[in-house]
Design a binder for these strands. Structure first.
Length: 429
RNA sequence: GGAGAAAUACCCAAGUCUGGUUGAAGGGACCGGUCUUGAAAACCGGGAGGUCGGCGACGGCGCGGGGGUUCGAAUCCCUCUUUCUCCGCCA
């Protein structure tokens, strides 16, 4: 959500930005908002004036009553009666206009950073940089579910029976690697000065609607029957919700948090749920990083944050690249965003394992996340990035650390979390 | 889950029964000063937040959130949320 002042004062900039994002159908909305805003302010002004008059007369009644002038007071009372209806009309109109403006403002995309490449859709995203050699080994890498199965590490038949498609039982060493990676990801961020946080895994509807649109909510969020609660789709939901309507102390900035949570997603529409594997599932776990900072610091943080994820994957011997999101593929709330993609030696291409975004002040404006400065409050900048989402991260790990005999190398960094093991091999079930 | 109590500004806290000059006493913290080598203490002085509209003068809203009664609500009514105490239940 952008500042409406931009539409008041610099409509061309807003429209130019919309064109860059290939959303020309929204150009008209900008003009509509402009007109509605004028009407809104006129209505408010008229209403405020009437309310001021009415307040003055009410105060007068108070004085007259105290002086015992009942008759005069009653006369004034009758005068006031005329105000009521008009004020009510204006208030209703004012409210309607405000609501309409807000609804339309929500659809106006955030102003993207100058550095964002212009492109229509995800096919025009731009590879920024590769880290590590994308190796194609001289043996065939099995499908990830087969790797897991060979090590007795997954039971999807059972999860199908208990929970349906899109769930999984991870077993034995595979389950242990999964947890080890998350623990390592947690400590990796703690070592970089982030504060570890375990948030609520369910949030109320007002928090949900604060962080996403109704359409997104329908497509993603699981609702708890009979309660005003939803399972979170990512800890970002509860982490950003934590700061909703808060005025933060300048001296506490920046907030650098790393949160763990399970994530629940309906994955309606989208690409659907995969039948065999665990690439796209209804339930996964994630170590996330969230930063709330001063506006001038957000671009620095953005660059630090994606770099952390790159370093994390490199420390597990997984080659990665960063893919910059082009203007047309960039979600409306975002200023700039890139995916961190891991190398798949099986598919011989990169696949998404994380996403780093700066939302500028758009999310903060929408949720009322502010700090107090010299001249009143101002909106802060919010950023979020994946450290590790798994089992997806586990897929990247297995494919890049498997040997020809099906055993899995455990990189040094992970060994403390794996009981010191250097390698895992198939044993009995 | 049952029974009670409470939510006022950066913090503590009065006001609520008995609606009107209460944007809201008082204290702390804060800022400026006196004193002091410096600091603390003491004393003197200062300003009370937020948000929306307006170039401004100023005005609207605002005492946990939402709604209602009234010419007028921190104050009365309804509702939601949260916190505390007691009982019950539980990893």
């Amino acid at each position: 959500m952008i500042d409406i002042k931009l539409i008041r004062e610099n409509r061309d900039l807003v429209k130019e930005n919309i064109k860059k994002k290939f959303q020309d159908h929204k150009l008209l909305t900008v003009d509509e908002i402009y007109e509605l805003d004028i009407k809104y302010r006129e209505t408010k002004q008229e209403g405020d004036n009437l309310r001021a008059e009415k307040n003055a007369k009410s105060a007068l009644i108070g004085n007259l009553m105290r002086e015992g002038k009942k008759d005069e007071a009653n006369t004034v009372k009758e005068e006031i009666a005329n105000y009521g209806k008009r004020i009510e009309e204006l208030s209703a109109l004012e409210e309607d206009l405000a609501l309409d403006i807000k609804k339309k403002m929500m659809t106006i995309p955030n102003i993207i950073d100058d550095s964002v490449p212009i492109g229509k859709d995800d096919s025009e995203n731009v590879e920024n940089e590769k880290f590590g050699e994308p190796v194609v080994p001289d043996f065939e890498i099995p499908y990830h579910a087969d790797i897991m199965e060979a090590l007795n590490g997954i039971d999807k038949d059972a999860s199908g029976r208990t929970s349906g498609n899109g769930f999984y039982y991870l077993m034995g060493d595979i389950a242990r690697i999964h947890s080890a990676m998350l623990s390592y990801a947690r400590d990796f961020m703690i070592d970089r000065g982030f504060t570890y946080c375990i948030p609520p895994f369910m949030i109320r509807s007002d928090v949900v609607t604060g962080v996403m649109s109704f359409e997104e909510m329908d497509a993603m969020m699981y609702k708890i029957e009979g309660e005003d609660l939803f399972l979170i789709g990512t800890s970002e939901h509860s982490m950003i919700g934590k700061f909703k309507d808060q005025v933060l102390k300048k001296e506490n900035l920046p907030y650098t948090l790393t949160s763990y949570s399970p994530c629940f997603r309906k994955e309606v529409g989208a690409h659907g749920i995969e039948e065999r594997g665990v690439y796209r599932v209804h339930q996964f776990e994630k170590q996330e990083m969230v930063v709330i900072c001063e506006p001038e610091d957000s671009m620095d943080w953005y660059n630090k944050m994606w770099r952390y994820t790159v370093d994390f994957f490199r420390s597990l011997d997984i080659p990665v690249r960063t893919l910059e999101c082009c203007s047309g593929d960039l979600a409306d709330l975002k200023v700039k965003s890139c995916d961190v993609e891991a190398w798949s030696p099986r598919q011989q291409k990169y696949f998404e394992v994380g996403s780093c975004s700066t939302l500028g002040d758009a999310q903060a404006r929408r949720l009322g996340i502010r700090a107090k400065g010299e001249n009143g409050t101002y909106y802060l900048h919010t950023l979020n990035n994946t450290v590790l989402a798994t089992p997806r991260g586990l897929i990247a790990f297995l494919e890049n650390n498997i040997n020809a005999d099906g055993s899995i190398n455990i990189p040094v960094a992970l060994r403390p979390y794996m009981g010191g093991k250097e390698k895992i091999e198939k044993k009995g079930k």
